[in-house]
Design a protein around this nucleic acid. Structure first.
Length: 327
DNA sequence: AAGACCAGCAACCGCGCACGG
DNA sequence: TCCGTGCGCGGTTGCTGGTCT
């Protein structure tokens, strides 16, 4: 037995709201408030609308102080950074942007910002450039990345200053403004509030979220190239979709030899620096692609993408093109 | 000029969660 | 503790206007 419908579908109007409906709803809520019951509201207002529809219309359009129009660069930066840290929690992101609604931000992200960022990160392949930075490397800022986008050469992505740095100790990409190892390993996605409050003035970019950010939607070439010829993918072997205390982070590295053969090594980087402080390197763990596929094989398979709570695995890609990311 | 295509955005849908009985 | 109900969220759909061919 399915869930009871929230309203009588046959007797509710759907589609765009008329100015009259808007006026009715606004006038009523201004006068009496929502009464804490959206389902009952349409009847009180005299609208043939679903309560959920009224709520949406109010929240996204009618309520006071809604900001419409262009997003500022500042807002862009906040959205990008928050998305990279907490993913598509649009309501949380919206809470950081007064006057903006989650729907607005979601639409803005999907239609403009994601494309903009993709073109910045890798203007040629639309893939994510990952390269080992020199120790003295000063990561660029997001704003400088955005500024850089207009001048980046399309033929030499490896020379782009937008290289990404990752730290396994914190489980976060920084890549931008913040030195690595600013987060404690106990920081969890679940604990969103503390996660946010621990964010430095310049937000960090969360490793797995950034991958999702870059690779979701299946667009472009999937491999992550580095200047030394290695491709790097990451996954998290935690199954519940939430970062855990002292969780292991397993990094897969694939290398292409002179014959264009790709080998994949899986390096456990738990507790050590991302690119390995060899003396502290944890024992290697090996998870082949087949094993990973097995891990996720119980999940549903739609549109050539096997998915589960943690992973998306694009089967249509070749080995080195495969994208595996923490979800 | 007209049809095809695309981008932007408002709105819908379904699911998970919280809460009260 | 269980169940029903409403809310809130995120993904998706579909309409509309603009651009391209």
């Amino acid at each position: 037995m399915g869930r009871a419908p929230c309203c009588d579908k046959a007797n509710v109007k759907k589609g765009p709201w008329s100015p009259e409906e808007d006026a009715k709803l606004k006038e009523y809520i201004d006068k009496y408030g929502t009464g804490g019951n959206w389902i009952a509201l349409p009847q009180k207002v005299g609208l043939r609308r679903c309560g959920k529809s009224c709520r949406l219309r109010w929240l996204n359009y009618l309520r006071p102080n809604i900001k419409h129009g262009e997003f500022s660069e500042e807002e862009d930066n906040i959205i990008i950074n928050l998305f990279a840290n907490i993913g598509s929690r649009w309501s949380i992101i919206a809470a950081q942007l007064p006057g903006r609604t989650d729907n607005d931000i979601k639409n803005y992200w999907n239609t403009k910002l994601k494309k903009k960022l993709m073109s910045i990160i890798n203007p040629t392949t639309q893939g994510l450039l990952l390269r080992k930075p020199p120790h003295h490397h000063q990561p660029s800022t997001i704003s400088s990345l955005l500024q850089h986008s207009s001048s980046t050469s399309t033929s030499s992505s490896s020379s782009s200053p937008s290289s990404l740095i990752c730290t396994s100790q914190t489980g976060s990409f920084t890549g931008f403004e913040q030195p690595i190892s600013s987060f404690s390993p106990t920081t969890t996605i679940l604990n969103q509030e503390s996660y946010l409050t621990q964010m430095p003035p310049h937000y960090q970019v969360n490793r797995e979220s950034f991958q999702q950010l870059m690779f979701s939607n299946g667009g472009g070439e999937a491999s992550c190239s580095s200047s030394d010829g290695s491709n790097s993918f990451y996954y998290n072997n935690n199954n519940n979709g939430v970062k855990q205390e002292n969780q292991e982070v397993v990094m897969m590295m694939s290398n292409e030899d002179s014959n264009n053969n790709t080998t994949i090594n899986n390096v456990n980087v738990n507790g050590s620096g991302l690119w390995g402080s060899s003396s502290e390197q944890a024992p290697l763990e090996y998870f082949g692609l087949e094993e990973i596929k097995q891990l996720i094989s119980t999940s549903s398979n739609t549109n050539n993408t096997i998915s589960c709570s943690n992973f998306l695995f694009d089967e249509s890609k070749t080995a080195e093109e495969r994208v595996l990311y923490y979800f």
